[in-house]
Design a protein around this nucleic acid. Structure first.
Length: 261
DNA sequence: ATTGTGGCCTGCCCGC
DNA sequence: TGCGGGCAGGCCACAA
């Protein structure tokens, strides 16, 4: 599913759509337009403008528009794909279909000259929003400092994994990345977030930055070393112990009972 | 405020 | 071969 790495690929792809005049907008699915946005309002606000910059905070892709136009926020849920001029932002997306099915195009910005930028989302868990409240999101995981992480975990009695996935604290950590980085850091996802000592927080911080670097350079969230083993009967690639499956923070969680403490 | 739970969405996979 | 049930998880509403 699109986590930080995939949305970063989408952002880079969206860069190729900058500076092109938007001539038409197709938004056939009202459900996909969030926070009261309508197809009419979307059209009125962006037709005649162009995208001027792409930004990303966690899993939220932000497209600035020219003049005094709105910031267009794109969310991809777990199955959303970005396409520009028919080309995809990613080649593989776990849990989503890669079928070429135009009926799944939930919003399309058509450009002068014939190209377009579209969000294709079979499951409709993503969405489009105007001027999203960027302050609601925590620091992007890729830019997270040790002090940020310390502050995000301090005094919390919530499970470590749930805290890491709280987008208001740290933006961009999804379920797969959370399992991967806690496995690498040797930390039990169910630990109380506030129970980590200083050395553990430092290690988690180093591991977090390194993990996102690896997932990004490796080609996406599905390229983690734990990924292939997150299945019934799967064994820890580090020590061979049978992985355990739990629900933590409402999410399916795989971890090693031996080295994750 | 913090933490936990349930529901939304629907393609896909499994077992019968 | 078709069918039905369960599953996946990002996000949000809501409860305690």
């Amino acid at each position: 599913m699109p986590e930080l790495a995939e949305v970063e690929y989408y952002r880079r792809l969206a860069d190729t759509a900058l500076g092109r005049e938007i001539t038409k907008v197709s938004a056939p699915d009202p459900w996909f337009l969030k926070a009261g946005l309508t197809a009419r309002a979307l059209r009125t606000a962006v037709v005649g403008r162009s995208f001027t910059a792409t930004r990303r905070i966690g899993k939220l892709l932000l497209l600035d528009t020219s003049g005094d136009g709105p910031v267009v926020g794109l969310r991809f849920g777990m199955t959303g794909v970005l396409l520009v001029d028919g080309g995809r932002g990613v080649d593989e997306l776990l849990y989503s279909s890669m079928r070429d099915e135009p009926a799944w195009d939930r919003v399309t910005f058509h450009f002068a000259g014939g190209g377009d930028l579209r969000v294709r989302d079979p499951r409709r868990l993503g969405g489009v929003l105007f001027d999203p409240d960027e302050a609601r999101l925590g620091v992007d995981a890729q830019a997270l400092t040790l002090a940020d992480l310390r502050a995000a975990l301090a005094k919390s009695r919530a499970p470590l994994k749930a805290r890491l996935m709280d987008q208001a604290r740290v933006a961009g950590v999804g379920n797969l990345a959370a399992d991967e980085l806690l496995w690498r850091a040797g930390l039990d996802p169910a630990r109380e977030a506030g129970s980590l000592d200083a050395a553990e927080v430092r290690k988690l911080h180093r591991t977090l930055l390194r993990t996102f670097e690896d997932l990004l350079s490796g080609g996406g969230s599905h390229t983690g070393r734990l990924q292939a083993h997150r299945v019934p009967g799967g064994r820890c690639p580090r020590d061979g112990a049978e992985l355990i499956r739990r629900t933590i923070g409402g999410r399916t969680t795989w971890s090693c009972p031996d080295h994750q403490r």
